[in-house]
């Protein structure tokens, strides 16, 4: 069984962002990048599937990024993915085109399962998994917090706004990981060294026959700062008085 894990390179969310000169994107020269935390959860789940239900599973990590994005794919290899594929692309790319490129990779690799993060913590779109499943005509399971293998597919727990939903999907399928699916392992030093010897293949959207068709045109960005000034009060009584003055409580 082949498991494909799309891995996005994102700015580390624990840093202060700056915008580029014309405010159309963040200033990429000033940030450090990491593997999208939800994709790390997806890699971890693939490893656990290989460690339990499917020891024969081959795990392939795929990223669409500039050439230096290989560093973040190495994170997936160091965690335990078998091989990696980097689709080299400079600049912004929207979820529709990410899904098209991934679909082209999937037509070549023919995996039985796509495991990926529910969203990337840069654009927070939460779209690629659904777009990919739609393009492939495969079932999807989003916001997933538990996966069990059955005789004919996967029994899945989904975290919805109103509670935990359980569904069953046949394979092949697209599964998007939520926060509580697992806690990803840290790569050990020996596995980081070993990962350097693992194969990473490079390709481009053009080699896969994909010409980007933009769907989202970003006109500009603004950094959001707090507009509030905090009035410190010293007692619970004072706090309630202020809230009554603001007419938010009676």
């Amino acid at each position: 069984m082949k498991i494909l894990v799309p891995c996005k390179r994102v700015p580390d969310p624990d840093q202060k962002l700056r915008l580029n000169a014309d405010a159309t994107d963040i200033d990429g020269s000033a940030v450090t990048y990491i593997l999208n935390p939800f994709d790390a959860i997806a890699v971890e789940e693939a490893l656990r599937i290989r460690e339990t239900a499917h020891p024969e599973a081959e795990i392939i990590a795929v990223s669409i990024a500039p050439a230096e994005g290989e560093t973040d794919l190495r994170t997936a290899l160091a965690m335990g993915a078998d091989r990696a594929l980097l689709i080299e692309h400079e600049g912004q790319i929207d979820p529709w085109n990410v899904a098209r490129i991934l679909a082209a990779v999937i037509h070549q690799e023919k995996p039985a399962l796509i495991l990926m993060g529910k969203q990337a913590v840069d654009d927070d779109a939460n779209q690629v998994g659904q777009f990919l499943a739609a393009q492939l005509g495969w079932p999807q399971a989003t916001f997933v917090s538990k996966i069990e293998f059955t005789t004919d597919g996967l029994r899945i727990h989904r975290e919805t706004d109103i509670g935990i939903e359980i569904i069953h999907v046949t394979l092949p399928a697209v599964v998007t990981a939520d926060l509580r699916l697992n806690e990803p392992r840290y790569a050990s030093l020996p596995s980081i060294l070993k990962a350097k010897k693992k194969p990473t293949e490079h390709s481009t959207p053009a080699k896969l026959g994909i010409k980007p068709e933009p769907r989202i045109r970003l006109l500009g960005m603004e950094l959001i700062d707090s507009q509030r000034t905090c009035e410190k009060v010293t007692t619970a009584t004072d706090l309630l008085d202020r809230l009554r003055e603001s007419e938010v409580i009676e």
């Binding site: 979820p95 529709w96 899904a99 779109a125 939460n126 990919l132 499943a133 739609a134 989003t142």
Partner: peptide, 20 residues
Amino acid sequence: TWAKDIVGRSAGLLGGAMAS
């Protein structure tokens, strides 16, 4: 979560011009 799941997939069938 309902819209992200179902409307997201619908957008994937309708050409992907989606803003969330």
